[in-house]
Design a protein around this nucleic acid. Structure first.
Lengths: 341, 341
DNA sequence: TGTCAACACGAAAACGTTTTCGCAACACAA
DNA sequence: TTGTGTTGCGAAAACGTTTTCGTGTTGACA
């Protein structure tokens, strides 16, 4: 077992000072050609690599990005991480991932932990509980310390920082509009409880589409789901008790569950009932029938967020405090769960 | 913007030495009650938190675990991370995630990067390319430096270290045996190319089951897929050209693709053709019909791997070099793609 | 009054870097 | 011989901690 070699050891071995070794390795002009080559050869032989922790301490830069998300077992978030990681890596950054498990407390603890020197900046998406409580002190605190934060997807207007989102409202509007354009009249909505920011916005898009087309909003056709694990029965009831001809679901899971429920009730998709989901993940692609859905490119969101963060980290003039909100475009991926439009 | 406060600043402000501040905060008995309270009050007021980078440098421990996996957009790996993260967090560790993208070079670069002080130990799963090349020098090097490594799922016998796996061979055997027990005779296998360790083992399990039941191995019924993105046609051909009555697939994607292909050919699952997959992920659960599959508990694997790593990190007597290989149990999750067994 | 502990605190080293500054040695010109 | 400039290197500070050891002040006791 040969431990990592340090400058000090090289210096001792070569009988020169630490400074000389350091300068030699960094090709400083202060050092004679002779010494430089000697040191570099020795360093190479012993596979010297500078200790990154020591560098972090000295430079007050860790070259590490902290990611805080509610869940990783979630295709969308996984794609976002993938996007972040890629851009980060290209720029010499690592990513450290923390999961809030949708819990406010875990979110706070993780942020405080990472904020104590481990990272240069945050990329995050709010936990449900945080959105519910509307308590963002942990985030403002971090920002006040001069650490940049980029929020994505689940964001809040209460915090001033860079953001990457999609236009949830518009995307939902367009999806529902496309249903209306195809002659559907009784369109049900399966959505989340309102405090989830994106759920709320998508609901608004749905409402707007109906309103624009002078279709009366029927509260019976709107299902707000709190507990995603036991939504199957509720969805089945919705379909059984109302003669709906189409369903707009605010995520994949609701959509696929709706399709299963329809099948159970003897209804065919898309012939008897059309379904549009949200988020173009694994499920939509491989479900039978495959699901028409609003694609929300996680890779792009992650990549954009990482770019914004790194730019801010590497811009000298720190005080430019001009926060941007980037909107990633979405589009409808038409598959088998809707009639060919 | 108020930057983080340091011991030095507190010391200056209170007109005592840095040592006194440090000791006060750590409740040293060397310090008088008076001073201690004064310092602690001040520290609390300014929300002092020790700088973790400085601690890492001093203690030569980062309390961080490095994870290197081929892909994150992969339900199984995501669940493993989730399992690792949970255990890590409970023990005061963070996780830093790097993706190899199935590339040998990226795997090497990431490992070397993290090995330079950023982490205390690795949890990793080999990239396809690494398995193909059988070049593990980067891993032995890290181990030789005294940094513990735990490998999971895609492991190799060429490296001595702790491992967490499932018994791929046995699990595949049992799955195929259950098909045979139910009267299926022409059982096709959809697998990966052989250098993927788990694919190879699962293939062996399939072979063994046939052999044990004196069913002749028909090479026409075995499909080895290299490029997962364009496997649909190959699978369709397999089914069209051979009168198979069941399919064993070594992952979810192959399984669901097989079901879709069967449907295209007018065959019903499970009536005309039964399908068993591997890995109990999102697809198996939500596909129609849902897929009978070998469950491989990623959360448990991750949790176990993290436990093993942390134990090794925190055991004083470093030299115990007694490496263990833990086998996580699997079981068959019976769903709709097989007749009720 | 002199001795000795106990107490309370500070100085300094250490972790591994980078960088600024100072200095010795030497060459060269005046 | 003196002054000036260059070359090549080392000492030391700095980043923020923890910890060991040294030391000055007190109080008790003989």
């Amino acid at each position: 077992m040969k431990r990592k070699v340090t400058l000090k050891q090289i210096a001792k071995e070569l009988d020169v000072s630490i400074s000389t070794v350091s300068k030699s390795l960094r090709d400083s002009s202060e050092i004679s050609e002779d010494t430089r080559q000697k040191v570099q050869a020795f360093a190479k032989l012993y596979n010297y690599k500078p200790n990154l922790i020591a560098l972090s301490l000295k430079n007050k830069k860790t070259k590490t990005i902290g990611i805080i998300i509610p869940e990783i077992v979630h295709h969308f978030f996984a794609t976002v991480i993938s996007g972040i990681e890629h851009v980060a890596n290209e720029n010499g950054y690592n990513v450290i991932v923390c999961l809030s498990d949708e819990s406010f407390d875990k979110e706070v603890i993780n942020m405080e932990m990472l904020a104590n020197g481990s990272i240069d900046g945050f990329i995050m998406s709010l936990s449900k509980e945080t959105q519910h409580k509307k308590d963002f002190h942990h985030i403002t605190e971090v920002i006040n310390q001069g650490m940049p934060v980029v929020m994505f997807d689940r964001v809040t207007n209460d915090i001033l920082c860079d953001k990457v989102i999609i236009d949830d409202n518009l995307a939902a509007f367009e999806a529902v509009q496309s249903l209306i354009d195809n002659g559907f009249k009784k369109i049900a909505l399966i959505t989340t409880v309102d405090y989830v920011s994106v759920g709320k916005l998508r609901t608004e898009g749905y409402t707007k589409a109906l309103h624009n087309n002078e279709i009366k909003l029927d509260e019976n056709l709107i299902l707000r789901i709190e507990d995603i694990d036991n939504c199957a029965d509720q969805i089945e009831n919705l379909i059984a008790n109302n003669k709906v001809d189409a369903i707009f679901a605010v995520n994949e899971l609701f959509a696929v569950t709706a399709i299963k429920a329809a099948g159970k009730l003897g209804l065919k998709v898309p012939e008897d009932i059309a379904v549009i989901g949200f988020t173009d993940g694994i499920i939509s692609k491989y479900s039978s029938p495959s699901i028409t859905t609003v694609s929300q490119n996680g890779i792009k969101m992650g990549a954009k967020a990482a770019k914004m963060l790194i730019e801010r980290l590497e811009s000298e003039d720190e005080e430019e405090e001009h926060y941007k909100t980037e909107v990633i475009e979405t589009h409808l991926v038409v598959r088998e769960s809707t009639p060919t439009l």
